[in-house]
Amino acid sequence: MRQGQRLEIDRISKRYGSVVALREMTFDVRAGELFGFVGSNGAGKTTAMRIALGVLTADSGEVRWAGRPITLENRRHIGYMPEERGLYPKMKVADQLVYLARLHGMSKAEAWRSAQEWMERLGVAARRDDAVEKLSLGNQQRVQLAAALVHDPEILVLDEPFSGLDPVAVDVMSTVLREKCARGTPVVFSSHQLDLVERLCDRVGIVRSGQMVACGTVAELSAGGNVQLVVDAPAAQPGWADRIAGVGTVGHEDGKTVLELGPGADDQLVLKAALATGPVREFARRQPSLTELFRNVVTEHGASEGKAA
């Protein structure tokens, strides 16, 4: 198994009785890429990850690594961090990491060396002789990431890896993931922290009802959305832009009004209306954030499904 290859999820479907968890889910994670996998609770993210790992079997479709189906042998080269933490609560941190590394084929010496390295990198070396259950939730999260990394995986699949971490731990984990990508490792992670996904990821996939409904870089996804205007008109009264054709108010940020321009909307009319209220200290265009894109994509597809039903 070589680094520098793609992980491919090809039209996988999964049903639990009458509940459809995945519907021909398709995406790939390229060599050296951080891929963000986002969706509402129950959208199918965890099911897709478990199928990629072979923990679950798909009803149809295929998962491939380097162009070949995932097998029991090459699954040993995947680092997985589940959302429901999978550590042994009464086992000591160091013993646990060494045990997991050995399960993935490392020698005892290699396993101890790697465990020590990751405990130090992730700031839990001082707790090496503590049982996992005695750690804070944040430190348990760090140990869980160490467990995913200790065998030097060639693919990383992480389910909500940043959940419960403080800002310092988020920075440490972000650095580790970028380093793995720099070595050619494909990294896919799910998260509800969309600002973090937007900052870290090369590409993002948005999932709804078991389907991939949008996929691309944030810039590519933003290009399909409506342009926004940030207007700082301190004397303007609420609703000052409501009567301008094709313009809607998204919200307010630090006293500024955020507007969305629909197709054919004229930003010069917005500027004229803003100036009519008094001085304008800022008038700038911007693309929507990933949070706004996510909300729009999920809402649009939800409405489409409702009409189809």
Rank of each mutant, 00 (worst) to 15 (best):
R15K: 08
R76Y: 01
V38Y: 12
Q116M: 09
A284T: 12
L196Y: 07
G210H: 02
I9Y: 05
W240V: 00
L122Q: 04
A52F: 08
G246P: 04
P153I: 01
Y16V: 02
R285K: 13
A126S: 14
G210P: 07
A284G: 10
C215I: 09
G54L: 04
L165K: 00
G86Q: 02
E133K: 14
C181T: 15
V188K: 02
N226C: 15
M106K: 09
R2E: 10
G184P: 02
G79R: 02
A101Y: 05
E8Q: 10
R128W: 11
V170H: 00
G32I: 01
V297N: 09
K307A: 14
A147Q: 12
L7G: 08
D254R: 12
S136F: 10
V218E: 00
W65N: 00
A233D: 04
E73T: 13
K14C: 01
D202M: 01
L177G: 05
G216W: 13
R15I: 03
P69G: 06
G17T: 06
F35Y: 14
A182S: 10
I244E: 03
P153W: 01
R6A: 13
G4E: 01
L269I: 05
D171W: 03
K14L: 06
L221M: 14
L53I: 04
E260Y: 03
G302F: 04
D59V: 04
C181G: 09
A109I: 00
G262K: 12
L97N: 08
S209T: 08
G86S: 14
G205C: 06
K108L: 12
G54K: 07
R85W: 00
R2F: 04
L200F: 10
A148V: 14
V207Q: 11
S114G: 02
P238V: 00
E33H: 11
G79P: 03
L165A: 00
Y80H: 13
V197F: 05
L22N: 13
Q140H: 07
R85F: 03
G248E: 15
G278T: 08
R85N: 01
G262R: 08
N74Y: 03
L149Y: 01
G44H: 09
L229K: 03
E24N: 11
L275T: 07
H104V: 10
D202Y: 10
V124A: 06
S304D: 11
M106H: 01
P82A: 10
A109N: 06
L97K: 04
E83F: 08
R23E: 13
Q140S: 10
V270K: 02
K45T: 09
D202C: 08
I70V: 15
V231W: 01
K45H: 12
F37Q: 09
G225C: 15
S289H: 11
I244Q: 06
V157W: 04
D166N: 11
Q193M: 05
V170N: 02
R286H: 04
S174D: 07
P69Y: 09
G248F: 03
A146Y: 10
A148Y: 06
D129M: 13
R30W: 07
